[in-house]
């Protein structure tokens, strides 16, 4: 017993270095962000301006909305590869149920705005539910299940627009996607509210705790009498609905709804979550990390436009930065496990 109390004392007396090591997951992405911001600010006079900050915020909004749900999924040590496809199909669906200009040649079904919105939300929730059932009831790994869903959602998109482009979405969504209030784009406000909401749910609700516990040790969660399948299913539906909202606002933001419009958002949203430091093994991280990850990606994408750089090289640089972040993610996990020993 005396050795154990001494152990506790020793733990409290542990220095700053071990503490920093255990916090590596949170510190590293933040340092990356500061480094990138500093670099671009020095490299280009047009980067560090208030206007450009607004640009960056707008540019990461759709990714941010999608990343909220994906954070829940990754915290549970699962993955959702269908986020971009579900965003796309939801955006297309809301346009499909809206009256289009006469030159748009899609045999669509115009409905009142609220009904169109509701149907689109139901669609993405239903697709999320299919993911959830595949994962929990049938037992298909989420990687494969959502890979199939990616195709299914893309297929529904294709059938709805048949290679055409729709332009109109309900007015409310047009406002939220492309309007602004007091100089602040609505889409940024929606993204901020959703990120905040996700953070509050994860941090302060019972469900949020369950998400962390299921991600931390699924077997232990089950032996603690948690309904693990219900929690896993819920995060898949949350992810799909967040993607759907991102898709609808995205369509309004871009001013068009068409096939393959959101393809780049799959990688971007996964990257935002993981670059931010949320563990791919589950149980560690959160919306705070995702926000930092979003800014890292946003600053990187935006900053590369401000410096004179071969636009083809941009893609490679993005890939390398993502790789570096993944390496840090894995090392942070290891360092933490070491610190816990």
């Amino acid at each position: 017993m005396s050795s154990e109390t001494a152990l506790a004392a020793g733990q409290r007396a542990r220095g700053l270095a071990p503490f920093l090591r255990s916090q590596m997951r949170n510190i590293a992405p933040f340092l990356t962000l500061i480094f990138l911001s500093g670099f671009f600010a020095l490299a280009s006079p047009s980067f560090a301006t208030l206007d450009n900050l607004g640009n960056i915020l707008t540019q990461v909004s759709v990714t941010g909305i999608i990343a909220v749900g994906l954070t829940f999924v990754i915290l549970c040590a699962e993955i959702d590869l269908s986020v971009a496809s579900i965003a796309n199909v939801t955006g297309i669906a809301v346009a499909y149920f809206t009256l289009q200009e006469s030159y748009v040649n899609i045999p669509n079904i115009p409905l009142p705005g609220a009904a169109a919105f509701l149907l689109a939300i139901l669609l993405c929730a239903a697709l999320g539910l299919v993911n959830a059932l595949g994962l929990t009831v049938i037992g298909i790994p989420s990687f494969i299940m959502t890979l199939a869903m990616m195709q299914i959602a893309a297929g529904i998109s294709a059938l709805l627009v048949r290679g055409q482009i729709a332009y109109k979405v309900p007015d409310m969504i047009t406002t939220l996607g492309s309007g602004s209030i007091g100089g602040i784009p609505w889409i940024v406000i929606v993204a901020a509210i959703m990120l905040l909401g996700g953070h509050l749910v994860l941090t302060y609700t019972r469900f949020g705790r369950y998400v962390y516990m299921v991600g931390g040790n699924r077997e232990a969660a089950e032996y603690s009498g948690l309904n693990v399948k219900l929690i896993l299913g819920s995060v898949m539906v949350i992810s799909a609905v967040c993607s759907g909202i991102g898709g609808m606002l995205g369509v309004a933001h871009f001013g068009s709804a068409q096939q393959n419009e959101f393809d780049t958002y799959l990688l971007d949203s996964i990257a935002a979550v993981v670059v931010g430091g949320t563990s791919l093994f589950g149980g560690r991280g959160g919306i705070g990390n995702t926000i930092v990850g979003l800014f890292v990606l946003g600053v990187l994408n935006n900053g590369l436009d401000h410096v004179n750089i071969d636009s083809f090289l941009k893609i490679l640089i993005r890939g390398l930065i993502l790789l570096a972040a993944l390496i840090i993610n894995v090392y942070a996990q290891r360092l933490r496990e070491k610190a816990a020993e």
Binding site: M213, G216, S224, G283, E337
Partner: peptide, 8 residues
């Protein structure tokens, strides 16, 4: 191990 969360 089956019922405890070591990192919590």
């Amino acid at each position: 191990r089956a019922m405890l969360f070591h990192q919590e």
